[in-house]
């Protein structure tokens, strides 16, 4: 912090003015600079909160998981097909929960990807301006509906509806949970895919139209390939949403761990298991308490993997033009 030396002024009038202020300037400068520095430091701290959050998440999950894996061998955790941590005959096979997560995710994607992609292509390439102005906020609102409401909808509307078609369907099943989750993810897929398509330069479309291509041909053979990595990253985001979704599956798919890939059966997902344990009253530090952290760590690793893939894809998509 060096104060600026005042240069001798050539004119007496200015010298007088400067002399009057020369006492004030250095101290004001110093105070100002200190304030500026302090403000910058405070803002940096605010930005660092996100880093601390990540570190705390990893630390807590790893810490409790280490305690868990001291009791349960990692090999059992990965290969056992039963998940009954709270029974006398305790089994800790995460596969039984992963199968539920995987099945509901696949059902959700079978809804979200076709519907989301068609909507994205339609909104980006076909829809008139007015339709888009209404459809975009509407889809945003669909994405803003609380997940618990979707859970209610799955359990008390979609399941009874499906039971009319397929009477043997149990009250809790992965099918209706997955279908509703798919609807829930549509806005994410469609809005991100549409953004990617809109980022494709107009002149590529114009070139295609000039060759006599229709809108559909342009959309499918020019715009979609050019926006492919952005579209793919929207799918990845959809997957990571579906994997981490909690309330829909906890309400509509049941909370019974079940090693099965059959969507018409009830099953628990990783997230549903955490909810189930949290609803009970497990003492802090018990093995049962540690299981939810081990399950949470598995979940975090899966979503992290997808996030990284998505990040790489997005980066490529940004560099394309």
């Amino acid at each position: 912090m060096s104060s600026i030396p005042l240069k001798p002024a050539p004119q007496p009038l200015i010298v007088a003015a400067a002399a009057g202020r020369s006492l004030a300037i250095p101290s004001m400068n110093l105070r100002r600079r200190l304030t500026e520095r302090a403000i910058e430091a405070v803002l940096l701290l605010a930005a660092l909160v996100s880093v601390f959050t990540t570190l705390a998440i990893v630390a807590i999950l790893v810490w409790e998981s280490i305690a868990f894996f001291r009791t349960v061998p990692l090999l059992d955790f990965l290969t056992d097909t039963q998940w009954t941590p709270l029974f006398d005959d305790a089994h800790f096979g995460i596969i039984a929960l992963l199968s539920g997560t995987l099945t509901t995710t696949i059902v959700a994607l079978l809804v979200a990807i076709p519907l989301g992609t068609v909507l994205a292509i339609y909104l980006s390439e076909f829809a008139p301006f007015r339709v888009r102005e209404v459809a975009k906020p509407f889809l945003e609102m669909l994405g803003g509906v609380p997940t618990i409401v979707y859970g209610y909808f799955a359990l008390l509307f979609v399941t009874p509806l499906l039971q009319q078609i397929y009477p043997d369907l149990p009250g809790f099943n992965m099918l209706s949970a997955g279908l509703v989750m798919g609807i829930m993810i549509v806005p994410y897929v469609s809005s991100l895919s549409e953004d990617a398509m809109r980022a494709v330069p107009m002149n590529m479309r114009e070139a295609s139209y000039a060759m006599g291509a229709t809108r559909l041909q342009t959309a499918l053979f020019v715009v979609t390939p050019a926006a492919l990595s952005g579209i793919a990253s929207s799918y990845i985001l959809g997957i990571s949403r579906a994997v981490g979704e909690t309330m829909v599956v906890a309400i509509a798919a049941g909370m019974q761990p079940n090693f099965s890939f059959n969507p018409v059966e009830p099953a628990a997902t990783i997230t549903a298991y955490i909810v189930q344990v949290a609803l009970g009253d497990l003492p802090h530090g018990s093995l049962g308490y540690q299981t939810i952290f081990a399950a949470g760590l598995t979940l975090l690793l899966i979503t992290l993997l997808f996030n990284i893939i998505g990040h790489i894809l997005r980066k490529r998509f940004r560099e394309a033009y």
Partner: peptide, 18 residues
């Protein structure tokens, strides 16, 4: 960017522990 993709239930576990 990464935190935006972390499932909400993980925040619950963070809060439970921390």
């Amino acid at each position: 960017t990464n935190l935006a993709g972390v499932p909400s239930i993980i925040y619950g576990l963070l809060a439970l522990g921390l």
